[in-house]
Structure formats: structure tokens, C-alpha cells
Nucleic acid binder design. Structure first.
Length: 158
DNA sequence: CCTGAGCGA
């Protein structure tokens, strides 16, 4: 009577290393009893979404995801005119988010609905409309910037 | 080389 010693193989954590850590942040958004939505604070300036445009803001990117990877990922839903992963100019590393510009707003909408919440390089990405932003930092001390001296950007406050 | 909310040189 000899029992075959079958070692309880270490079948632990077999998928724990197959997914990045940021993956679980999506599933950990449950509040047991702390369900208290602020009744008086329904609008948070800054967190609101931007109006539909051809420009998309993609966040949640893997910091190692290159621009071309972002482009070809969004190209499945439309014609990407321009794609860019924002990288820090000082170090050159990605900041974890980027921008994708489609040819039309229709394609941008399909791309947003098609890529929002999807996986890219093992990370759940979020796609939303990018806010209109000045191509240049806010006016500070432009003493020689009257109205016709736009030598850097084309967008002005008029 | 970084590990995570975020809107770009």
C-alpha cells in the first residue's frame, strides 16, 4: 500500500505574472458600503469630457508603447492622420498617454468606442476626446506679440 | 533605469 506521492504542484499564481499590475485597477473599483455620491458636487471642472473632435486623448498606455504601436492599434477603426505618444523631453520616456488624430470625427468616434477599455501591451487604455489646447503655453510676458507675430503656432485666442 | 493620474514642445 504505497500511495503515490503526488506533490501538490505549485499551481499557484499562474496568471498572476502574466498580467501587469495596472490590470487590476480596473477590477478594484468596488465600494462595499461607501456608496456616497456627492449630491451637491456633480460637476467637477477639469474632469469633464471634451466635445467630439478628430483628436483623441489616449491614457493608460504602457510606458514602453511606441507611437507606431499606438497608431496601428487605432488604425483598425479609422484612418489615423496623426498619432503621438507624449514623451518627456528631458528624459525621453513616455508619460503613459498619447494622442491620436483621425481624418474625420466619425472615425474618431469609432476609434474611441473601439479602443476605449481595450488592451494595449497588457494595459487597459482609455480613449476619449482630447481637449482643445493652445499649442503654446498661456500668454505670460509677450511684449512683442501684438496680433500678427505668430511664428510658432497658428492657434490664437484672438 | 519609471508602474501609474494623467491633456501634448
Amino acid at each position: 500500500m504505497a500511495f503515490t506521492l503526488r506533490a501538490a504542484t505549485t499551481t499557484t499564481a499562474m496568471a498572476a505574472r502574466a498580467a501587469p499590475r495596472g490590470m487590476w485597477r480596473v477590477f478594484s473599483t468596488n465600494s462595499p458600503d461607501s456608496f456616497n455620491p456627492p449630491p451637491t458636487a456633480g460637476t467637477t471642472p477639469g474632469r469633464e469630457q471634451a466635445p467630439p473632435s478628430t483628436n483623441l486623448f489616449v491614457s493608460g498606455l504602457n510606458k514602453r508603447t511606441p507611437t507606431e504601436k499606438l497608431r496601428e492599434a487605432f488604425s483598425q477603426f479609422g484612418r489615423v492622420v496623426d498619432a503621438r505618444v507624449v514623451t518627456d523631453r528631458a528624459s525621453g520616456y513616455s508619460k503613459g498617454f498619447g494622442f491620436v488624430r483621425y481624418a474625420t470625427i466619425e472615425e474618431a468616434e469609432k476609434g474611441r468606442e473601439g479602443m476605449d477599455g481595450k488592451f494595449l501591451d497588457g494595459w487597459v487604455i482609455f480613449a476619449e476626446y482630447a481637449r482643445p489646447r493652445p499649442e503654446r503655453p498661456p500668454p505670460q510676458n509677450n511684449t512683442d506679440n501684438f496680433n500678427g507675430g505668430d511664428s510658432y503656432g497658428r492657434q490664437r485666442y484672438n
